[in-house]
């Protein structure tokens, strides 16, 4: 009970700090803080349609976060998740373009998911190989590959896959509706995608907790040398964790293409890969907390879209809140370990 209260107090202190900082920022920009919070709240949870948008943002973030948990467990900073998502989207677009006009759209959609996972997995696997065989730090490899992926996306949109007539930043041509994931009409999100994300959470939790793979990932992550002496092969597990993370990120990319935008866009990843890194850090690497944090982040992202329309503020306020939250968490963790020592 005592630990519960201490935990509760920590969260309360942290939230108060973040709240104070955000309010200060809002006051500086000359806006009414209460009004801004109200619009974010209404814009995200105010109606079923808005909730549907929140869930649409929640799905890719949760998928990416599950994968990232595995790479964090083995001690890798898989910053390349953003590019892995983009490559998933690219591979998916390739398959859906093939499927346009065919009489078996469902088959092509299923293959599109497999292709998405393969695209993300491939990108992660290259970064993993660079790490294990080439001695290239995964952060720099991942960052570099993100920009290469962004270049590929732009090149495809403006070159190979450009719209008939004029190529533009608005992306490739829309897919025919039979290649869209079917929606529940009331809330406008795809139950299949939601199911997939929930499945990813459960499977990741089970894998990390109850299988040898999960145990070995943790062993290597906490002490690679000892794990190697025990006969584990860190290189192989690094590749495995990267493949898993990349695959899930790729599927997130598939969903962005087939369910959210129905085409390939320059900003197809919507920054969700990078945000997922924040989600996992804020969740303290705990799979049970990840869905909740991802939901909160999704609410902020969707709700803040209202700010430019209602209050002439920039929608990037959500990013400020998210960043300050993570910084506050890191500071609280530091303070905690200081107290413990």
């Amino acid at each position: 009970m005592k630990t519960f209260f201490r935990h509760f107090a920590e969260i309360a202190v942290m939230l108060a700090a973040v709240f104070a900082f955000t309010t200060l920022i809002l006051e500086i920009s000359g806006a009414s803080a209460m009004e801004a919070y109200y619009h974010i709240f209404r814009g995200s949870l105010g109606s079923w349609v808005r909730l549907g948008h929140v869930i649409k943002a929640w799905i890719p973030m949760t998928l990416c976060s599950c994968g990232l948990l595995c790479t964090f467990r083995i001690g890798l900073w898989n910053i390349g998740v953003e590019g892995q998502m983009m490559m998933g989207a690219v591979f998916t677009t390739y398959l859906l373009r093939l499927g346009a006009g065919s009489n078996m759209p469902v088959l092509f959609l299923i293959f599109a998911f497999i292709a998405g996972a393969a695209g993300g997995g491939l990108w992660a696997w290259i970064a993993g190989l660079l790490k294990t065989k080439g001695g290239v730090n995964e952060i720099f490899a991942g960052l570099g590959m993100n920009f290469v992926a962004q270049g590929i996306v732009l090149w495809l949109i403006f070159g190979l896959w450009k719209r008939p007539g004029i190529a533009s930043m608005s992306g490739t041509e829309l897919f025919p509706p039979e290649l869209w994931l079917s929606h529940l009409t009331a809330v406008r999100f795809s139950p299949a995608a939601l199911l997939l994300a929930l499945l990813a959470v459960v499977l990741t939790a089970l894998m990390l907790r109850y299988t040898h793979i999960g145990l070995n990932l943790r062993a290597i992550g906490s002490n690679p040398r000892a794990a190697y002496l025990l006969g584990l092969k860190p290189g192989r597990y690094i590749l495995l964790a990267m493949l898993f993370a990349g695959g899930l990120a790729g599927i997130a990319g598939t969903i962005q293409v087939s369910d959210v935008y129905h085409r390939l866009l320059p900003a197809i990843s919507s920054n969700y890969g990078y945000l997922s890194l924040l989600v996992v850090m804020l969740s303290d690497y705990n799979i049970r907390v990840i869905p909740a944090v991802a939901f909160f982040f999704a609410c902020l992202n969707v709700g803040s879209i209202q700010l430019p329309m209602m209050l002439q503020l920039d929608s990037s306020l959500s990013g400020v809140i998210q960043g300050v939250l993570v910084l506050a968490t890191l500071a609280v963790q530091a303070w905690k370990s200081e107290v413990r020592n």
Binding site: S29, M281, Q312, L313, S316, L330, A331, W335, S337
Partner: peptide, 27 residues
């Protein structure tokens, strides 16, 4: 002084300061 990962803090700050710039610079 707080013994947190440089990479983590730097990464959070790069996202946060960019958004802060857009937000405060709006006008």
């Amino acid at each position: 002084y707080l013994r947190q990962s440089q990479v983590a803090v730097g990464f959070v700050l790069t996202l946060m300061t960019r958004d802060l710039a857009y937000f405060l610079g709006n006008s």
